[in-house]
Every structure is written in C-alpha cells, then in structure tokens.
C-alpha cells in the first residue's frame, strides 16, 4: 500500500480543525484540565493531592480523550457520508488513519504535559521519559480501541454507546482500586491501572524504577488492541455495513 505524505498532511490539517471545532471531542481534554483546576481548589493539600489530581487528569485525557478522538471522527465521517467521498478520491484507509491519528496523539501529549504544572507538581519531580512513554502509549491504546469502535459504528450516537462501558471502566480505575483489594488487583492488569500506579509511585518515591509487570501489561494491551484493530480493518475496512 502506497502512502502519500501530501495526502496524510492534508488529512492531518482537516482533522486538526475538525477536532478543535468538535466540542463533543474537545470535552475530554478540557474536562481533564477543568477537573484538575477545580479539584485543586476544593481538595485540601495532603501531600498526595498532586499525584491524585495528575493521575485523574491523565486518565481523563488518555482514556476518555483517546477513545473519543479515535471513534467519534470516524463514525462522524460515516454518519455524514463524507468517508465514501474521501475514499473514492484516491485516499486509502491507512493515509486516512495516520492523518487522523497524528493530531489526536499530539493533543493528548500536549495536555498530559500541561496537566503537570496545573496539578501544582514541580516539573523536576516528573521522570519525563517514562511519564511521556507510559501516557503516550496509553493514548495510542485508547485511540486504537476508539478506531475499532469507529469501524463497527455507523453513527456518533452508536459509537458513544459502545464506548461508554470502556470509558467508565478505564477512566475510573482509581475509584475501583479504592473499593477493595481484589478489584484493585484486577485493575492493575489494565493499562489505566498501570498509568495510575506509575504516576503514584513516581510522585511518592521521587523516582520511578521500571516495573517489568507494568511494562508487560502496557505492551500486551498495545499488541492486543493493534491485532484487534488490524483484524477489524482488514475484514471490514473503515466502512463496516
């Protein structure tokens, strides 16, 4: 399959504009920033507040944002019948996906960086390499999950309905982890659980040591989501009917 940089660039610009003007997508990064800002004013500073706020903010951005940015634009294109026009205009599926993925992942990374200062966490306390690696990989997993949902959805409403259980389960991981130990153990095998644990350990111990289990969990989620995406894409293309 030939990939054209010119076409990817054109789709990148189109998708950047469509993401920034679609409030149902922008609600996720804005909610992540807004949640952290509001909770910072409401919650008493216990010394762990920054880690809690950053963890929640990152999950909102990576899970809610990632899944929505993956599924909504694709299902919107199908709902408004613009995808067929694009696909019959010499654009192939992979060019469309790469052009759509780039603005989403850039937005996720930028918001993850912005969340650090607004959580009142000193920049020096962050292990930037692992932080960006874990959160960006988490964003990619969510986007792949979003694309799979987008492939099987015909409209934004359907995409929203399918996304909801994944979003609730993964975004509120810290809440489930606090509920009981068994649930906390199960959630530690989710990529949202790994991100939560990573942020917590990094900010409490001052430095993060790579944990083999966490890396295996993250990589496994990425591979599984990639395989599911490749299967859905190769079987149905972008337009599942």
């Amino acid at each position: 399959m030939n990939l054209s940089i010119r076409k990817i660039n054109a789709i990148f610009k189109l998708k950047t504009q469509s993401i920034f003007t679609n409030m149902s997508i922008m609600v996720a990064p804005l909610m992540a920033i807004g949640y952290v800002l509001i909770m910072k004013l409401v919650m008493p500073d216990t010394g762990f507040t920054g880690a809690y706020l950053l963890g929640f903010g990152v999950l909102f951005n990576v899970i809610l944002g990632g899944i929505m940015m993956g599924s909504y634009p694709l299902s919107e294109e199908k709902e408004k019948n613009t995808l067929r026009v694009l696909m019959t205009s010499s654009v192939n599926g992979m060019e469309f996906l790469i052009g759509s993925l780039l603005p989403s992942i850039i937005l996720i990374v930028v918001v993850n960086i912005i969340l650090v200062p607004i959580s009142s966490i000193s920049i020096s306390k962050i292990s930037w390499g692992p932080y960006l690696l874990f959160t960006t990989l988490g964003g990619l997993i969510s986007l792949l999950l979003g694309y799979v949902i987008g492939i099987y959805s015909k409209s934004q409403m359907q995409s929203s309905n399918i996304s909801m259980p994944f979003i609730v389960l993964l975004t509120f991981t810290p809440v489930f982890q606090a509920a009981n130990k068994s649930l906390a153990h199960i959630m530690s095998y989710t990529y949202s659980g790994v991100i939560t644990e990573f942020i917590s350990k990094m900010l409490t111990s001052g430095k993060y040591n790579f944990d083999v289990k966490n890396i295996v969990v993250m990589v496994s989620w990425f591979i599984i989501c990639l395989v599911v995406f490749v299967y859905a894409y190769s079987k149905h293309g972008l337009d599942y009917e």
């Binding site: 504009q17 408004k80 019948n81 613009t82």
Partner: peptide
Amino acid sequence: IEDGLYDSL
C-alpha cells in the same frame, strides 16, 4: 445521492 460535504469548512 448520499454523498456529504464537510459542513464546517
């Protein structure tokens, strides 16, 4: 007949 356009552009 169903083909759509990007309305926001």
